[in-house]
């Protein structure tokens, strides 16, 4: 069943009043945000703030309790297939078919996405070379290091040149060279026509360096949103780093010296 595409079909992602529950625990509470074409949007938050739950809802892994998610106008609850066709996803943990080799896994992904063999092969070769993965393409994924698995996931996410990249802590476990490549890729990718990136991270300096806009999640609620300058203004902290802004807006800085003092005394 394909729903009629609404007027905001050029908007890469819009989330309206998203609520996600796990049993009795509320992970996301009435989240509303939108990502514009060409934008890199960073989701920041403490552990358990709801970043991964938001991302999993966008890619269809979690069924929200309520709310609406649209990817280029396609409602994920109604027309999830169309939405997924446009998304490239890198999960937080290396969730792969462990018994396959990276090449077999990519072949499966290419088949499901109905990709042209020549183009998909070309992209696989290029990314494998860039990430120095060639010698591991025929090793079972179960035997690969977490950094190598992460590279495989990144390769799979880019294989179909998606319109929306959704990345959950994408730089986890990557070596510095690969981190640099991914960061450059994201910047170039978002700059290309109509595309956008949503990613979550704990690395404040990465968010500061890459993101056009940042959303700060705290216990499932979007506490603040905007460019770094806007967030600084909101935190009334003119030349602060993103870390300082984050701690102030989430009130995580309260009791911080006392916590450190407690540890020093232990």
């Amino acid at each position: 069943m394909e729903a009629e595409r609404p007027a905001d079909a050029t908007l890469p992602l819009s989330i309206e009043r998203l609520t996600v529950d796990y049993g009795e625990r509320r992970a996301v509470d009435g989240l509303t945000l939108a990502i514009r074409p060409g934008e890199i949007y960073g989701l920041l938050g403490s552990n358990g703030a709801g970043k991964s739950s938001t991302i999993r809802s966008v890619v269809g892994l979690v069924r929200p309790r309520s709310g609406r998610i649209r990817v280029f106008g396609f409602d994920t609850a109604v027309d999830g297939m169309r939405a997924k066709e446009r998304i490239g996803y890198v999960p937080e943990t290396s969730l792969l078919y462990e018994a396959l080799t990276p090449r077999e896994f990519l072949e499966f992904v290419a088949g499901v996405r109905r990709l042209d063999p020549a183009g998909a092969s070309e992209r696989m070769r290029a990314y494998a070379q860039a990430f120095r993965l060639e010698s591991e393409l025929e090793e079972p994924i179960a035997s690969l290091s977490s950094g190598t698995r992460q590279k495989v996931l990144i390769l799979a996410a880019f294989l179909h040149t998606p319109h929306l990249l959704v990345l959950d802590e994408p730089l986890n476990a990557l070596d510095p060279r690969s981190v640099r490549i991914v960061k450059d890729l994201l910047v170039r990718y978002a700059a290309s026509e109509g595309r956008a990136v949503l990613f979550s991270t704990h690395m404040m300096e990465v968010a500061e360096e890459l993101c056009h806009r940042i959303g700060i999640l705290d216990r499932g609620v979007l506490r603040a949103e905007g460019t770094l300058a806007e967030l600084r203004a909101r935190a009334a902290h003119g030349d602060a780093t993103l870390e300082e802004v984050f701690l102030r807006l989430t009130r995580e800085d309260e009791g911080l010296p006392a916590a450190v003092a407690l540890l020093e005394g232990s």
Partner: peptide, 12 residues
């Protein structure tokens, strides 16, 4: 076994 990733794909 690959549930999360498989469900993120446009696989009917």
């Amino acid at each position: 076994l690959g549930f999360s990733y498989g469900r993120a794909l446009p696989l009917a």
